[in-house]
Write a protein that binds this DNA or RNA. Structure first.
Lengths: 226, 226
DNA sequence: TTATTATTCAATAGATCACTTGATTAATTG
DNA sequence: CAATTAATCAAGTGATCTATTGAATAATAA
């Protein structure tokens, strides 16, 4: 790796970090890890990759200094190696959104075909939820819900949505949320609920943003932790 | 490119940006471009790549939305597509420095072998330069010097340093600076001057940091624009 | 001990990437 | 007009990357 040329060596080290982030699959892993520590099998399932493949990608991320791991019993838990990694991911998203026309087209196409309506702002949801006017729906996996969620939220992971349709009424608006501005779980949920004739909207951004903006958060098993 | 899967497509777009930055050569180009607009041949020379290779790398950067170009006469000038690209580069450096042991080893080895002394802080240089106690040496290429430099600085590009040794005296300390914290020009200059028995130190960071911290700047051809 | 589970390792084929070389385009000059 | 210059394009080769497969390791349970 060392070429004896300081400048080159240094840039090549920086490039290692970028190379680790140059795969959509690995970025997806990083985004999940931004939510907190996760074992390998959970990451494999959520990313849709095989276990071995996921493990290898995680090791590339580790070699680039982006994640760290900890073994506990049979499981190996991975986590981001620092908040600066979150900043880096954010910077990457920002540049892509500002300068890649394809990203905007993708988002626009998806939104217009799935959910033309504006997301509901956080403050508005808070006040309307307090008045009991809306049902707050958390479509993330149960484990993420257990680690923290919006107050009064009901947890129905996206895959189980079809089995719970009778819990919704046509008169009470449903506001779905998930992980963040680019998490598609909430989009999908809104699309499916609307297909059933229900009133559904999407929360602006997701749980991490809600939490980091200082709004109230509930922990532990919620009202629907079946 | 499109897989019909929104989430995947989106992450793959983000990955395109990271992939463009996953080469040391391209990062080097980006760092030069952070100084301002440059034509292809200048970038080729400074990076040590062939013209064709440089051109191809620049086009990859453009496809990733990191740079833009403008044609003027025979020349094509490239520039960063926005300040967010600078932020992204900074984030990349930060993560690499914090989490890659190799980077710290590289920097430490280089510093201890070339320049064990601390860099001189900006404020200190300013006051000492005003008292005429130090000679401020800009070792960047003449064109960069002309675009802006420290007040009273003398411009001697690194390659011409050996031909100008008689301009320095052993009693007046020399403070060299260049582009930034990882630009090696100043390191090299200090090493060579010390090898001649002269008192030489390096400014903390470089010209961009000096300028952005609000300290005075001179423009146009300086006192030594031979 | 053997079996089970979570993870990693090793080997592989196909795809993509980096750099070189020589030809080509576009703007300028004589 | 032909010659020159800056940059890009096109093709080829060796290297690297990705995902898959099946085997190996390590911790736990029976």
């Amino acid at each position: 790796m060392s070429t004896g040329n300081f400048k080159h060596d240094l840039f090549n080290q920086f490039a290692r970090v970028a190379k680790a982030m140059s795969s959509g699959n690995r970025l997806e892993l990083l985004e999940f890890l931004a939510q907190g520590e996760r074992p390998v099998d959970a990451l494999a399932e959520v990313s849709g990759m095989t276990l071995a493949n996921t493990s290898q990608h995680l090791q590339q991320l580790r070699l680039a200094g982006l994640v760290e791991s900890r073994k506990e019993g049979l499981r190996v838990y991975y986590r981001l190696s620092g908040d600066d990694v979150v900043d880096l991911l954010k910077g990457l998203r920002q540049v892509a959104e500002r300068h890649l026309a394809e990203v905007n087209l993708l988002v626009r196409d998806y939104l217009s075909s799935r959910d033309a309506l504006e997301p509901i702002p956080r403050a508005e949801l808070l006040s309307r939820a307090r008045e009991g006017l809306v049902m707050v729906l958390d479509v993330r996996p149960a484990e993420e819900f257990a680690a923290g969620h919006l107050p009064g939220a009901v947890n129905i992971p996206l895959g189980e949505l079809e089995g719970h349709l009778e819990e919704f009424g046509p008169d009470r608006e449903i506001v779905a949320y998930c992980r963040g501005p680019h998490c598609i779980l909430a989009f999908e949920a809104v699309a499916r609920l609307r297909a059933q004739g229900l009133q559904a909207r999407r929360l602006q951004d997701g749980f991490p943003e809600w939490k980091s903006s200082g709004l109230p958060v509930e922990q532990g098993s919620g009202p629907d932790s079946a």
